[in-house]
């Protein structure tokens, strides 16, 4: 169960700040690790906007997660440079290898696969980050090794 009282506490800190919604969402995320569905009504109510608007903002920013993250977090860049170096195909392969779709967390909670738009490392595309460590020029073969290597 999500502690909505805690959420309301966070929300109340931001409702009077101009543009406070984004900060509030970050605040919620730092408390819960993600933005739980159960908090959306309170956020909407606090800022006096609709639930759809809250959802629109959350879904616009890839930073906001709507479910708890997996133990391992894999982030793949989808921006232009990486795309031109095959990040899309890589993503499909990674989905297969990890058994989870992009922007989702595997049911067992072991791993989350996330989208990033540009790590600022375009020269060495495509880029993948595993648990905070950036790996450049990733192919599906070396991805498997990277993931396994770290698991071992």
């Amino acid at each position: 169960m999500v502690n909505t009282d805690k959420a309301v506490e966070v929300i109340n800190q931001y409702i009077d700040i101009p543009g406070g919604l984004l900060e509030c969402l970050h605040g919620i995320q730092s408390v819960f690790g993600f933005v739980p569905k159960e908090t959306i009504d309170d956020i909407a109510d606090g800022f006096n906007i609709s639930r759809a608007e809250v959802h629109g903002v959350i879904s616009y920013y890839h930073d906001f997660k709507t479910s708890p993250r997996g133990k391992k977090v894999v982030r793949i860049c989808q921006a232009e440079a990486c795309q031109s170096m095959g990040s899309r195909d890589l993503t499909r392969r990674v989905e297969e290898i990890l058994g989870v779709k992009i922007d989702e967390t595997r049911v067992d909670g072991a791993v989350s696969l996330e989208t990033v738009y540009c790590f600022g490392n375009c020269a060495l595309s495509p880029n993948v980050e595993i648990d905070g460590k950036l790996h450049a020029r990733v192919t599906s073969d070396n991805f498997e090794k990277l993931v396994k290597g770290e698991e071992a």
């Binding site: 906007i49 609709s50 759809a52 629109g56």
Partner: peptide
């Protein structure tokens, strides 16, 4: 003046969503 709809996501993946990506009937 109901604000029941939004654009969900961005870029190629964006789509129109009712409520918090519910169906229309269960949204506002």
């Amino acid at each position: 003046g109901t604000f029941a709809l939004t654009i969900d996501g961005r870029g190629f993946d964006s789509k129109i969503a009712a409520g918090t990506d519910q169906d229309f009937l269960s949204s506002d």
